[in-house]
Design a protein around this nucleic acid. Structure first.
Lengths: 131, 131
DNA sequence: TCTTGACCTTCCAGTCACGGGAACCCTTAT
DNA sequence: ATAAGGGTTCCCGTGACTGGAAGGTCAAGA
């Protein structure tokens, strides 16, 4: 299977697959003409990566998870630790974004959005403190 | 006022202030020795930028907002449009992250995290669908 | 057989919003 | 004279790709 087939099968752009090889996440075979060849194992790895990335794991986390996945003797605690760390990061981001949303939402709510120059949004951005 | 004073006054790193000048967001004066000189106006702009960035506005959005801020005849509708667009992006991110958190949280919850190799997190990442 | 077009390859550059660090200039105090 | 602590520019690196150029490979049609 060539790269475009692998791309279709996994939903990952060909460019991304090449990138994953470049940074050593995967090692697809090569056929005699130099084309990358993807086996079921490669596809499984790519699917794994696609899912882990979709859950927001960093490439480095993915590398660890992939290594653990390929290690039949790994302890689930190791996996859980990585996942929990990532989960905390996600929750921090959500909390930050929620704060942004609330502040910004309040500003938008109080802004008439008409043709006049007075604008609470700009006023707030100019103020010395958000209060 | 030199750059380190401006940095203290606004909370922005000196590097960031230089960067903002480089991309044309601000244009501080220069004194005869080549040092940047920050006036009250510069500080106000920097504070404005710091606040807008803290609310997650992109540099491009900041550029527009700053231009609108300096235009006494602007319509508040223009500002509101930018803020609303950004608000939608934030809400999309929150929704994506929340979905991630829920999925990942469920996986972590069902993972014993002991020394044994069985791990629902990896199993799920290997599965053909999250369901 | 030739050619066309769809693949594939590598390599280089750009993205966003800075941060680190080198190499060097200016000012003030000792 | 020197040292410390500013300031300056310039270049490289980040994460995780994405776009594009230049060129090799393959299958099908005229």
């Amino acid at each position: 299977m060539n790269i475009s087939q692998a791309s279709k099968a996994t939903g990952l752009p060909a460019k991304t697959i090449r990138y994953y090889e470049e940074i050593g996440l995967i090692r697809p075979m090569r056929s005699t003409n130099g084309y990358r060849t993807f086996t079921d194992t490669s596809l499984h790895q790519l699917n794994f990566l696609a899912r882990a990335r979709a859950l927001g794991f960093s490439i480095d986390h993915c590398r660890s998870l992939l290594a653990l996945w390929e290690d039949r003797d790994r302890a689930s605690a190791d996996v859980r630790r990585i996942a929990l760390k990532h989960l905390n990061e996600i929750e921090k981001k959500i909390s930050d974004l929620t704060e942004m949303r609330d502040t910004l939402g309040e500003l938008v709510r109080t802004c008439d959005g008409d043709g006049r120059p007075d604008c609470p949004i700009l006023n707030s951005l100019s103020a010395t403190s958000f209060s």
